[in-house]
Design a protein around this nucleic acid. Structure first.
Lengths: 266, 266
DNA sequence: AGATATCCGATCAAATTCGTTCTGATTCGG
DNA sequence: CCGAATCAGAACGAATTTGATCGGATATCT
């Protein structure tokens, strides 16, 4: 949507800064105040003033910690902690992962900011069926008439806006799709994909079990990291999409276990 | 201010400078005053005068610190403002409906802007279990740790951000809660609640079937209106929450069929 | 339910920018 | 050749913008 020229330069005027803020909010749905201040290179006070002005014009909704689009499904809770600072990496990973999706596919997409970015790029595909337990992924794809979105049932976990529990796992039981695109909190060569939450782990296992092939989307901060609960063993991972910041030894070992690597350059 | 006659006498150099300023602004989209003064080898005062003249002709927009193209910083980016229209009515209805919820309840909430407003008020309750097929309702309640949210599975209907289809209906089959709060597109005394979409109708029926009592939330624009598919027959409706704009005869007839009325004053 | 941490709002101070007035310079007409 | 007029530059006061800090409010966690 950035049809304007590149955004590196700029004699940042007040009006332009506001426009930029508006663009950022529109692109991400919800942005924290701190992130906005960092993005436009201004103090938080100034951004707060701009937000107030934009809100008075009805262009966005402002609440504690940041701003969201008016009337849009967006996370009100959680963006103070989970801001997409490595958006460049995530973006590149998402781009690369798109190559693993074919027209007419049926795929599973797990929760996470990276997978959400990935989902945003799926709107171009046609005749796609996406199964997910993430409300954010579902919302991103809601506007695409050519993509059919199926949401698992289950109990809502507010912090990540994803569905968990036995109902979520059960609704995946009878399903079989070609590929699952998931993104845990840690990925190591020995223990595979892992996540710190037991409930989330259960659903992640079910997501992986519903697919013939498992594709893991993980930026470099997650590679080589182990968290509490193992979800997908390394043997079960078929593809890994990451960025060039990932440690080489871990990647090598993963490759030795049959994982095909896709490293995005930023 | 006697410089309004811009072209009676044309000092070629001045006109050329203005043209150059205009070109610079057009090329870069936004240029600071200092840069302009430097580029045309004139003082900032002169450039300021030129900018004022150019602005009066509508050729550019002047801001603090420089100038931009007229259309560049427009904020009408085609975003559809779907802000709630009868927000006052919806708000009052939602307030009144809250009285029908008790602590420790398990309830069903259907899709719709009114029910979303209703859900927003449930965050105060404790030990509440909410079953819904609406992503908007789920998102509103996501931040409340004391409210457990269960989402039905199903196919996502993007236009209303709700889950429909056999999976949605099936996940409601084994459920039994105390009250269902739903809001269709039309409500008449003869045919009860109705909606224009067949799929949505199916889920609405399942939502109603899962509850002992059905509470309909409908503002006055929907009362007395029939749409295509009937979802809940009038005998099955236990409560109606509406606002004082609703036609009295329809309300009377509904009351005659056993519907308890709750009319909100705005 | 209470304690803690974070965020918001308001007031104040510093810096930049704008508007106005004045002065010097160049050009055109008589 | 001289006067008038207009344009360009300079200076000063006013207005706007930005950033910092403090008290109060709000959300989160135990």
């Amino acid at each position: 949507m950035s049809d304007t020229q590149s955004d590196s330069r700029k004699p940042v005027f007040a009006a332009e800064r506001r426009q930029r803020i508006l663009d950022l909010v529109r692109a991400n749905g919800a942005v924290s105040l701190r992130e906005l201040a960092q993005a436009v290179r201004s103090s938080e006070v100034t951004v707060r003033r701009d937000l107030r002005a934009l809100e008075s014009e009805g262009l966005l909704n402002r609440h504690h910690g940041g701003a969201t689009l008016p009337g849009e499904l967006s996370r009100e809770a959680g963006y103070t902690h989970k801001v997409s600072l490595e958006s460049a990496e995530k973006s590149a990973i998402a781009d690369l992962a798109c190559a693993l999706v074919e027209e007419g596919d049926a795929i599973v997409v797990g929760p996470g900011t990276t997978t959400q970015e990935f989902a945003r790029r799926l709107t171009r595909h046609s005749e796609l069926t996406v199964v997910t337990n993430s409300l954010l992924v579902a919302q991103v794809l809601a506007g695409s008439p050519r993509v059919e979105v199926m949401l698992t049932g289950g109990t809502l976990r507010g912090s990540i806006l994803a569905l968990v529990g036995s109902a979520a796992e059960g609704s995946l039981a009878g399903l079989r799709v070609r590929r699952a695109f998931i993104s845990g909190n840690g990925l190591s060569a020995e223990r595979g994909l892992s996540t710190p939450n037991v409930q989330v782990a259960g659903v992640d296992r079910a997501l992986a079990a519903a697919a013939e092939e498992v594709v893991v989307l993980a930026d470099h901060t997650k590679v080589g990291v182990d968290t509490m609960v193992q979800t997908v063993p390394p043997e079960r991972i078929d593809h890994l999409v990451t960025d060039e910041g990932a440690p080489g030894d871990v990647l090598d070992e993963l490759a030795g276990r049959g994982v095909r690597l896709h490293v995005a350059t930023i």
